[in-house]
Design a protein around this nucleic acid. Structure first.
Lengths: 316, 316
DNA sequence: GTTAGGATTTTGAGTAATTGAAGTACAATT
DNA sequence: AATTGTACTTCAATTACTCAAAATCCTAAC
């Protein structure tokens, strides 16, 4: 059911920790410690460690365990990036077919099974996820209904307007607390994106970094509900975004703004940072983010009519 | 899987329509029309109609269909209220056992099956729903983890602070549009709550009316994401609220404030209404809503420690 | 005494068969 | 012509069962 198996996911995260320096060279990687950290048992951890051993990132001493290799391979960055493909292909395919009108509004699980040759379990998994992310809902009887929410450029604007309401507000929460370590980490990421990396990094990863920045900032508010709300709309945004092409010029602009906000925060000028965040989002709304759209023009007309319906359905 | 079967749910909604006057006395209730309205087929609708016929709310003429009875029974109100118990008992039970520390933080599906004598499907359904509503999450391997989010009074405050950010903002959205009919309907509901009804109506229904008011207002913003965010936090709030007792004095105050906001909206003074809404929520935050709490005092200590953890988990 | 390595048990995802419930088509009625 | 009533088809919830994966337990090494 999971996107990739547990050992692989654990190894990816360990890799990230090694790359970021959280685990230093030659350090003993204790199985139980890792298991505790991720809330799993030692069994999948052992497999993860063996996996990294095979790739030459860890060395093994029999009966003593695994240690971070003293000479890390050069292709560490590459390994990191290929591990990050979170969204499974089938999910994207379903989303895409709906976004491009290849699927009708109402479907049955049976129909999807035949159309895509998916097992009953797979169909269920995908629909459940899509429902969680808000662009599909169960009908009262049999069948599912695709919602037009994720389809329209208008929805995209709505997401940005929503973010304009919550993100600056979250920064002004009384429980907001600066965390230098997190700011430093984000600064590092944003700066690296301005460098050569941009050309070589896959588009998906670039967008993910952008989302991550905003989520890390909103997390500082100390209020989970702001974070949850942002994560929710970001998921839907990504659904639409991965179809569009990245505008590199705009991306540079975006990173620069992110760095400006970080600078303000580091100086403790939170109110200014909040205001700057609002401007930043407002700008993205006007300029339609660092993406160029390729919608069929026919969509907009239907949008208005369907809007009212959508609002009703969600109420059920 | 559903809370109650489809025919029953349809009949409840028809009942509501009849009580509210949307369906007038003697009117012919067409099967296909009803089916279309709720997005189902005629089969469950026919059962629903037969159900209402048995209760004497509809009359039947063979081969001509069902009609709203000209003399409605007196116990219509009672029937309406008993139909409205949306949250299934098992779900509340699970939630309650977690809130009162009868369940450990980590559980397996198996364990819950044995403890409550639930079928595999039932456990899955409940956990999936709880996860959707944000107070349970899958562990990476086997098992589930209950989150402390819904347990603490602090979480309650966080919800109100979140609402203070989104609700007034939603009212100032450029796409905000007044709908007299909806305002009128809400005015009616709030006024009726100030009357005798308060004493006789079950607490659950009173709280539901309160949520409904806010959701209907935010819906006017024309931005689905504001509505979705509010519905999400309201679900969690209800989880905690149904355990507390209602303070009637505070409830009256609340209704009065709702009516004030409605009055401002009706006069088109939206900015003032938005400001009043903020005050209203701020007041509820300070006075802890029309409920009195009965927490064990021991909870608060653990809260701070666990907070950081929660924020991490949600990020996964 | 702590940590790794291996054996054993438990978990829950996956699959197939069953069945009550919802959808569909068509005849009957007004 | 529109709507009800009925017969029939299709759907997906449920159940029972299998098996790979994860958790747990136990032993050995340092």
């Amino acid at each position: 059911m999971r996107s990739s198996d547990l050992p692989t996911r654990i190894s990816t995260r360990l890799l990230r920790d090694i790359a970021s320096g959280a685990l230093s060279e030659g350090e003993h990687v204790r199985g139980q410690k890792v298991a505790d950290r991720y809330g799993v048992s030692r069994t999948p951890v052992r497999e993860a460690l063996e996996l990294l051993h095979e790739k030459g990132i860890l060395t093994r001493q029999v009966n003593r365990g695994y240690f971070v290799a003293s000479s890390l391979p050069d292709d560490l960055e590459r390994l990191l990036n290929e591990g990050g493909n979170e969204t499974p292909k089938d999910y994207q395919r379903l989303a895409n077919d709906w976004l491009t009108d290849l699927l009708p509004e109402n479907v049955t699980e049976q129909m999807l099974r035949e159309r895509y040759c998916w097992s009953k379990a797979k169909v269920n998994e995908l629909l459940l996820r899509a429902a969680r992310e808000g662009w599909v809902e169960r009908k009262e009887g049999y069948g599912w209904r695709f919602l037009p929410v994720a389809k329209t450029p208008e929805a995209f604007d709505e997401i940005y307007r929503f973010r304009m309401a919550i993100e600056p507000a979250a920064m002004l929460e009384p429980s907001f607390e600066l965390d230098r370590k997190i700011l430093e980490e984000q600064r590092r990421i944003q700066e690296s994106m301005l460098d050569i990396a941009v050309a070589s990094t896959p588009g998906e990863a670039l967008l993910a970094n952008g989302s991550l920045f905003h989520e890390e900032i909103i997390k500082l508010s100390g209020n989970v509900f702001f974070l949850q709300a942002l994560q929710r709309v970001n998921k839907m945004r990504r659904l639409m975004e991965y179809r569009a092409e990245i505008n590199h010029e705009r991306l540079v602009e975006q990173c620069t703004e992110h760095l400006e906000i970080l600078a303000l925060l580091e100086r403790g000028e939170i109110v200014d940072a909040s205001y700057r965040m609002r401007q930043h989002l407002s700008g993205a709304l006007k300029r339609k983010s660092p993406l160029t759209w390729s919608w069929a023009g026919s969509l907009s007309e239907r949008t208005t009519k369907k809007k009212a319906l959508t609002m009703q359905n969600i109420h059920l």
